[in-house]
Structure formats: C-alpha cells, structure tokens
Design a protein around this nucleic acid. Sequence first.
DNA 1: TCCACTACCTCGTTACACATGGTACTATTT
DNA 2: AAATAGTACCATGTGTAACGAGGTAGTGGA
Lengths: 116, 116
Amino acid sequence: MSTQRQSEWLSQTRRGLLEIAVLALIERESTYGYEIVTQLSARPALAAGEGTIYPLLRRLRRDGHLETAWRESEAGPPRQYYALSAAGRAHLETLRREWQSIVESVNAALNPDESS
Amino acid sequence: MSTQRQSEWLSQTRRGLLEIAVLALIERESTYGYEIVTQLSARPALAAGEGTIYPLLRRLRRDGHLETAWRESEAGPPRQYYALSAAGRAHLETLRREWQSIVESVNAALNPDESS
DNA sequence: TCCACTACCTCGTTACACATGGTACTATTT
DNA sequence: AAATAGTACCATGTGTAACGAGGTAGTGGA
C-alpha cells in the first residue's frame, strides 16, 4: 500500500489539522494507532502514514491530552488504545473554536467582500 | 505593536494556509509585503509577522507564482509590489480546490455522521 | 537632534510531516 | 516446518516553514 505521494502544499498544511482530526476520531470512540491510520486513509486530504500518526499520538499523550491502555486483540499483536483525558476534551474544544476562526478567515480572503 | 503570542497549534496550522491567504490577497489587487502584514493582522487567525511573510513572498516568487516590480512611495522607502503570474493563478485555483477538500474532511471528522 | 513610522531584509531556533526500515505476533498457505 | 501476508507497534534522518529578534534606510514631525 504505502500512502501515495501528496502535494508539498498539502503536506505542510496538514500540520495541526491532523491533530484536530485525530482528537475528534478518539473523542468519537477510543481507538488505536493502526486503526486511525486506516480510517484517515479513506480521506485523501488527511491521509497520513504510520510515521506521522504514531509520533503525533505519543506527543498528545506526552502533553496530557490522551490516556492509554494496552488491550489484547483476538488475532494479532496487542493494541495500545487511546482515549481523551479531561484536558484533551478541553483542548479539542479550543481547537474547534480556532479551526472555525481559521475557516472563516481563509474563506474571507478567498472570497473578497461577499456582501450580505 | 509586534504580533501577539499565538498558540503553538495555530502556529503549526498556519503552514500552507498563509500561502493561500497571501495569494488571494494579491489576486484581489497587486500589493507589497508590509501592506500584507498589516492586512493579515486584522484577522487574528492569520496574523503573521514580517519574519514569516517576507520569506513566504520570496518563496512564491522563486517558484514562479509571483512577479515583482519596485515602485516608489510618496512618503517612505520604495515598495516591492507583487502580482500573480499565470502559473500563480493556476496554483491558486489548485489550492482553492484542495482547501475545499480539507475543510470538508476536517468538518466530517469533527461532526460524525451528520445524517442530513 | 531625536523619535516614530514605513518598508525592506537575514539568521537561528524549533517543530513537525514523511519515508524508510525494523520488531513481533497471528493465520494461512505450501 | 517454512514461507508469506496481515496486523500492530516503534525509531531515525531529512527537509521545510513559522517565528522572534535584530538590522538597514528613507521620511516627517516635535
């Protein structure tokens, strides 16, 4: 498989966006790294390989936004499940607001004076 | 003045987004670096200092997306005006589409099954 | 003369996406 | 029994961009 080559612009833009997307996925349901990579690959704009997702997850845990628990799988190696901490939920709410603000700003720049 | 301290997340997320915003501003009307910094500072989500904008403009010119011309100012030092090249216009159209796709993907992740 | 504003620029730090490659367990095929 | 494919984790090196800090000039007013 291997994630297909993305445009350089997309690669740069994904920074931060992946964080909000991953937090949202985990908010929906506690899950693990490999599954997140698989889910994201369904959306080309957010598709990211393991070399991106695993470091991101460890970073979010390091910063106290995620809690982890090892759980066995019926078939295959054990999985490390991630869940939002209280701080993580608050963080996601902040990012939601900032994301909203970014979308408005970029759209405003793209569509000059959309009067009314 | 000096651009006020932004969140780390915003700083990372701005990558690429600044490019589309700056190209859109220049598409609207040929302008120069200092003016762009001033205009962006009106939108906190996209506010960026000179240390960010000037390198970005030079990068866009280097890649053939912008053309430049020095023009005198009635008061103050001369200004370097930027305008979109044909390649720059095409590039902006591509980014518009990719941006649209990103917004849809992130919103879909943030709002699970919004069944009409 | 000094200060503030305009307008350009460079450099060093830091952070992150990504490709590559590695380990290990399970299940299926030969 | 050995090989293969799929699952699931991880680490390292490279390249790029945002940002802060600092520097150079020109203009105009106190």
